[in-house]
């Protein structure tokens, strides 16, 4: 494997070999969602009502967990300098790293989501749309998060600053992802919400790697 493909493979391997990032994200997701029935009480109607929101907010925090390591680990051992100096355009390098981040944390979350939806007593019509909107929303989280990760690379305690920078940017994704599932549960068409979500993903694909690359160049100085 050469070039960008090699970079994606490397980052996924790193995520699984050092500490199992995928396992951590899913466990975090699972534990957070499990806390809600304990906190709110086992009232099935209430759980069903809040299930969508809880799932997406928990997924958002879970994918946030590993975002601060997106560039930080490479920054600390000097790999980031070499990635910036590689002949590949830097936005594509960022895109490859986001892809790897999504494969190692986003995809496991998508797979875990329906199981947890069952735990939260989500209404049946919501399941297929839940999968679909998770599929559209999780790459957005990796891409938008890359901007924050680029801006905080090299900053001590950057991991604390990162959520403050990035969480407000996640709001549109959260609104339309939850909106799609709620619409399906209430018997309305989820299509408009999903289309907006897809548009957000397209926008993030085009803009975020460039913004993140600019932030990384600054961090090199």
């Amino acid at each position: 494997m050469t070039g960008l493909g090699g970079l994606i493979v490397r980052d996924v391997q790193l995520a699984f070999r050092q500490g199992g990032a995928a396992f951590l994200a899913v466990m975090f997701f699972l534990l957070t969602v499990t806390l809600f029935p304990l906190g709110v009480g086992p009232e099935l109607t209430i759980l069903a009502r809040i299930s969508t929101g809880v799932l997406f907010v928990a997924a958002l925090f879970a994918s946030m967990l590993s975002l601060d390591r997106l560039f930080q680990a490479d920054y600390e051992d000097g790999s980031l300098e070499l990635l910036v100096l590689s002949p590949l355009p830097l936005p594509l390098v960022v895109l490859a790293k986001c892809t790897a981040h999504w494969l190692s944390t986003g995809v496991p979350l998508i797979i875990a989501a329906p199981v947890l939806a069952l735990l939260m007593n989500m209404d049946e019509p919501g399941y297929p749309v839940l999968m679909l909107s998770m599929l559209l929303a999780t790459p957005c989280l990796s891409l938008i998060g890359a901007i924050g990760a680029g801006l905080t690379v090299g900053i001590r305690r950057g991991g604390v600053l990162l959520p403050l920078l990035v969480l407000p940017l996640f709001i549109p994704v959260l609104i339309f992802a939850v909106g799609a599932v709620e619409a399906a549960i209430n018997g309305l068409g989820p299509r408009p919400h999903l289309l907006v979500l897809a548009a957000l993903l397209m926008g993030a694909l085009a803009l975020c790697p460039v913004a993140s690359a600019a932030a990384l160049r600054l961090a090199m100085e």
Partner: peptide
């Protein structure tokens, strides 16, 4: 460019480290 840091990933073997950097520069 060879800087102060060695860019060696602790969880990759030496061969994997070298292969990755060579692959990134388009080595076949």
């Amino acid at each position: 460019y060879v800087g102060h840091l060695d860019a060696v990933k602790p969880v990759f073997t030496v061969a994997e480290n070298v292969r990755f950097w060579a692959g990134l520069r388009g080595q076949d």
